[in-house]
């Protein structure tokens, strides 16, 4: 069953001058079709300006299609009456944690979402507790968000979304402002939610090492999907991915260079462990 269905989607940013005449049209999304199944972990890669964020904003109806359509759990995003249900189904996490946290105490911040949905008070507290537990931040429930690290703040932001019980979370570069440890925390949290709570995840990122565990990767350029496949399939095409202004994890690049120099390695090595194992196998022959 699909969680998200995008069919022939196009979106144009239209700029008008002072008199309302059209000055320029920028096609940010150019007839994309794709499907995301329930419970999948999807990653979207692409250069700045390739249309990743524009696509993400269609998934919870912040933007509406110029052409084509988007369905979230079967609901058409172009229909106004579906709006609230869509926003409850697909939650969004943005780049800067400081822009997403509004309360002075962690648990109040997490409770803000369900409160707005009209959830009964008792259930709000239950949800707050569950979501903070799920992102591993329960012990900070009474802290001030100011005192948290970047990674911790981002986990609180994710808990705030989880408390609305979405079936799907869209994360738009959630680790861009974090240190290596903060990045690890956030990605591990998202993977856990996907595995344990079966939340569908759509992760937009510029960090190649964060997508190696995804079920599927989409690579975008100029508003189109250019590559689609498992991380291993995508990252074994090193030259092609670099053409789209992207990169591969450092260890994948190392394996690729060794292969070019004649070493007999499998395609698309993604982790340090895989490379070490492959080298061990060669040496023990």
């Amino acid at each position: 069953m699909e969680m998200i269905k995008v069919k022939d989607l196009s979106f144009e940013y239209i700029r008008r001058d002072e008199d309302g005449n059209v000055e320029s049209i920028n096609k940010a999304i150019d007839s994309i079709s794709l499907e995301v199944n329930k419970g999948d972990f999807i990653a979207v890669l692409g250069a700045n300006g390739s249309g990743k964020s524009t696509l993400a904003k269609h998934i919870n109806a912040i933007l509406y299609p110029t052409e084509g359509g988007v369905w979230v759990n079967g609901l058409n995003t172009a229909e106004d009456r579906n709006l609230w249900e869509i926003r409850q189904t697909a939650g969004m996490v943005f780049q800067n944690p400081d822009n997403q946290i509004i309360a002075t105490v962690v648990e109040e911040d997490v409770g803000f979402g369900p409160e707005n949905l009209g959830v009964p008070t008792e259930e709000i507290w239950e949800r707050v507790e569950q979501s903070l537990e799920a992102v591993g931040m329960l012990e900070f429930r009474n802290s001030s968000p100011n005192k948290l690290s970047g990674g911790q703040k981002q986990r609180v932001a994710i808990a705030g979304i989880m408390a609305m019980k979405p079936q799907c979370i869209v994360l738009d570069e959630p680790t861009a402002m974090l240190d290596p440890n903060g990045r690890k925390e956030v990605i591990a949290t998202v993977r856990e939610l996907n595995r344990r709570e079966n939340v569908t995840v759509i992760l937009i990122t510029h960090h190649m090492d964060e997508v190696i565990h995804a079920d599927k990767v989409f690579v975008m350029e100029r508003g189109r999907v250019m590559m689609e496949g498992t991380p291993r399939e995508i990252f074994s095409r090193v030259d092609e991915i670099k053409k789209y202004r992207l990169d591969v994890p450092q260890v994948t690049e190392l394996a690729y260079e060794l292969k070019k120099a004649g070493v007999d390695l499998p395609d698309g090595i993604l982790t340090v462990e895989e490379l070490v194992e492959a080298i061990k196998r060669i040496k023990s022959r």
Partner: peptide, 15 residues
């Protein structure tokens, strides 16, 4: 200290 080394450093150390 919440930091890390480049991935290749981990490869060499693991070997």
């Amino acid at each position: 200290m919440h930091l890390a080394a480049p991935q290749v450093t981990y490869v060499m150390n693991a070997l």
